[in-house]
Amino acid sequence: MKTNPGRFFEDYRMGEVIRHAVPRTVSGGERALYHALYPARGALYSSDEFARDSGLAASPLDDLIAFHTVFGKTVPDISLNAVANLGYAEGRWLLPVWPGDTIRSESEVIGLKENSNGKSGVVYVRTRGQNQRGEVVLDYVRWVMVKKARDVPAPEPVVPDLRKVVPAAELVVPAGLDFSRYDFGLAGEPHRWGDYAVGEKIDHVDGVTVEEAEHMLATRLWQNTAKVHFDATNREDGRRLIYGGHVISLARALSFNGLANAQMIVALNAGAHANPCFSGDTVRAWSEVLDRAETSAPGVGALRLRLVAVKQGAAPFALKGEDGKYQPEVLLDLDYWALVPL
């Protein structure tokens, strides 16, 4: 058989390392399309001059361009037959991605657990994205629920012990980054690292209604071939599921209003796609400041932020009910570290 139906839960083995096809050279084209798809306005990723004044050689590609590119490579091998992408942990951006870099991905299976219904199971993988020099630019863990195709015995369950937070001491600040001459006027807001208090919540005010066309462009742009995003017959309700990364980028872009100076994502502590998003939903976002840390880079601090995306009908700062479950309007709960000027 020449065609590839994709992997099912029973096809994975503990410790297996999967090299993903196909390497991709990224350019300013990805940046232009990213900024067209999302209201992304971060100054460091919009202006070479701003980036040079911040100690970098030029403007790197947005952190989430790197994430989506690395993630997209993994889909044919990890989540082509997924029911849902469940979560993330231990993510670190280790090097900037520059126009002209060639990105490839590989994943190691670090956990397997069949669901009690016997029809699906959860696969845990650690994915590394590398550039053309073999340098790791991004490293993260994710877990995904994958269908079973054959009635075979379940493997011995293995659930990895994952850290809830990337320690601030392990955050990697790009070489040369210096915010001591940071131009708050050009960045768009005056708020410094010291202006944010742990426990503070920020309503980002704005909203974006998701359209089918832009979602399909996004999944194709990042070469995400998961069937639930493309094939409307793959779900019983006949609806195409909006790619979770699309919601992440929308929420991150919306957070500019209140967090314009959270310039670089350097770690992904945890993440959950709490409820499905479909075309026609209007996405809004709010953030909570979870922690603060200083770095060794001049003028650079770090904020640990919870980014929550919700859809229409959500109560202010809605998250979980008394039962501990996410409210039905909550789409995304993302915990990350970002670099901010002191």
Score class of each variant (00 low, 15 high):
residue 235 R to A: 09
residue 287 S to E: 01
residue 48 D to T: 11
residue 128 R to W: 01
residue 338 A to I: 01
residue 185 G to F: 04
residue 86 L to R: 09
residue 262 A to W: 03
residue 99 P to W: 03
residue 56 L to I: 10
residue 191 H to F: 09
residue 113 K to D: 01
residue 270 A to Y: 14
residue 66 A to T: 15
residue 24 R to P: 05
residue 89 A to D: 03
residue 255 S to L: 01
residue 185 G to S: 09
residue 278 F to H: 12
residue 336 Y to W: 02
residue 324 G to F: 05
residue 214 E to V: 06
residue 17 V to L: 02
residue 285 A to Y: 04
residue 283 V to P: 11
residue 43 A to Q: 08
residue 284 R to K: 13
residue 23 P to T: 12
residue 302 A to M: 07
residue 62 D to G: 12
residue 227 K to D: 00
residue 204 H to V: 11
residue 267 A to G: 11
residue 113 K to L: 01
residue 42 G to D: 01
residue 174 P to M: 02
residue 272 A to V: 15
residue 107 S to K: 01
residue 85 N to S: 10
residue 184 F to Q: 05
residue 175 A to R: 15
residue 72 G to F: 04
residue 149 A to W: 05
residue 214 E to W: 02
residue 162 L to Q: 06
residue 283 V to K: 13
residue 228 V to T: 09
residue 207 G to P: 00
residue 155 P to Y: 01
residue 254 L to F: 05
residue 99 P to V: 07
residue 50 F to G: 14
residue 215 H to N: 12
residue 73 K to I: 00
residue 61 L to Q: 09
residue 217 L to K: 12
residue 252 R to A: 13
residue 284 R to Q: 09
residue 80 L to N: 02
residue 79 S to V: 02
residue 332 L to K: 03
residue 84 A to H: 06
residue 47 S to K: 08
residue 204 H to N: 08
residue 185 G to Q: 10
residue 27 S to A: 15
residue 318 A to R: 07
residue 175 A to F: 04
residue 155 P to I: 02
residue 32 A to E: 14
residue 272 A to S: 12
residue 238 G to Q: 02
residue 6 G to D: 00
residue 161 D to M: 07
residue 21 A to R: 14
residue 21 A to P: 13
residue 131 N to R: 09
residue 144 V to G: 00
residue 34 Y to G: 06
residue 145 M to W: 01
residue 183 D to C: 10
residue 65 I to H: 04
residue 121 G to E: 02
residue 233 T to V: 03
residue 205 V to S: 14
residue 161 D to W: 01
residue 105 S to A: 15
residue 135 E to M: 10
residue 197 A to V: 12
residue 266 V to T: 15
residue 256 F to N: 13
residue 27 S to L: 08
residue 91 G to A: 13
residue 216 M to S: 11
residue 14 M to K: 06
residue 164 K to Q: 11
residue 49 E to A: 15
residue 179 F to G: 12
residue 208 V to T: 09
residue 20 H to A: 04
residue 131 N to V: 10
residue 314 A to P: 09
residue 257 N to A: 14
residue 267 A to N: 08
residue 93 W to L: 13
residue 5 P to V: 03
